[in-house]
Design a protein around this nucleic acid. Structure first.
Lengths: 134, 134, 134, 134
DNA sequence: GTGGTCTAGACCACG
DNA sequence: GTGGTCTAGACCACC
């Protein structure tokens, strides 16, 4: 799977990494049990610091997306990801709330906003339909 | 309007301020032309530094939500907020994208996600319907 | 002559006042020897503070645009304005310099920039041609 | 590039910084992709506070002249500066207008004024022609 | 090391 | 009284 880092983004690199790997899982490009590159490999490939990659992997582990084996390296959680809990739902709402507020102020209708969300769901599902493994 | 700061949050204080004021505008608790507390007053009320409040106000000004008058202080943009541009839409999508990805991984259906968004829209609109002036 | 104050401008009110009176002289709307409203009158008309008007008048006096008589009030310098000195020329250049720099960076050609300047000269001269005294 | 601050100037220090860096880009002394000193370094070199330098950098970022990288620090916008928009043109005219008015009052001819502008353009372009890398 | 955030306290310009 | 500027010094996130 191709990972692209934008060094000029205001999003920390490790967050970009976390996001893209989760998106990879959502699209199905990364499948349960599949291995991820080693910290060193990925850091070298992306031209970033070891610690940055490691931090991303630790976060993914903490979130339940990957397992970190001492020898086998990092693999996508084979038993599937834990279902959403109330805490996660709450996080979604908290993140979306200011977006909705600003949308209302800027005359974006509820339906328009929903449309953007649906587009994103479509984006991930379409890819899941017919991808090649890389 | 009541403003509450969570010093433990990982969101910077000035961002929390920005968000809550935008939400206040969205709900109609803050109306165009209405004045906001002076930086010193609000800082004292919230027990934070006046520079932090000032930073929030500057961001709101730059976003077009408030005007900063010479002596009158800070007032909600009387002519309404600028409509959303492509740049803002893009920002929404970028913010929502990782949420959607993780939702898919955690078996939150598109409809469930949309429901949460609609709830937020309802939350703001309900308040706008019948609010008392404070 | 009509004077308009923009309370939301980042230019101080007294500067706006100074500028507009100088522009009035440049266009010929205000003629040498002509009287200006008293500090109190103008302040009341514009809905601003006495001190603000006074500050503007003092600056105009210091620049040689008006005389301030204790009884007769404020009148446009009857003997015409002092010619530009090296100091004034220097001031022009210092003010224009950063504009030119940014224009170059933003691909505004020298000729385009000059065109804007000529437009401003035309603006003042045209008015000078055929105006009615208010 | 040499930067000089005039602590006596009525122009805020951060504005002087902004101007000089833009002028550096206009002359070609600062080239796209080139790095600027860190806020701490520049502050120490100039004997001013790091927040003052930071404010200048933030303004330059907002104007599109520099990028602020995570760790690489501040670099001149590598893809060139955004072209002028109507808003910027308006700003030029607003700034130049009072200068033209006063020039007319002080018997500076249109041609003389234009000459000063052209001199400034020449000043920047000459440097751009044959500069040494510092 | 970098910039980002926050605090604290000072002085000034403006009206 | 208002906000604007500047200083000083602290701690944190990121890499």
């Amino acid at each position: 799977m191709l990972i692209e880092i934008d060094l000029e983004s205001d999003l920390p690199i490790y967050s970009q990494l976390v996001n893209q790997i989760i998106e990879g899982i959502a699209t199905g490009h990364l499948k349960p049990g599949e291995g991820l590159p080693s910290v060193r490999t990925l850091a070298a490939d992306l031209g970033i610091n070891l610690h940055t990659v490691n931090k991303a992997y630790q976060i993914l582990k903490q979130k339940g997306f990957v397992l970190i084996h001492r020898q086998k390296g990092v693999v996508i959680q084979p038993q599937g990801i834990a279902k959403a809990d109330a805490y996660f739902i709450e996080g979604i709402k908290e993140t979306v709330k200011p977006l909705v507020a600003e949308s209302i102020c800027r005359d974006i209708s509820e339906e328009e906003f929903i449309t953007y969300c649906r587009e994103l769901f479509s984006y991930f599902h379409k890819q899941k339909g017919g991808f090649s493994n890389e």
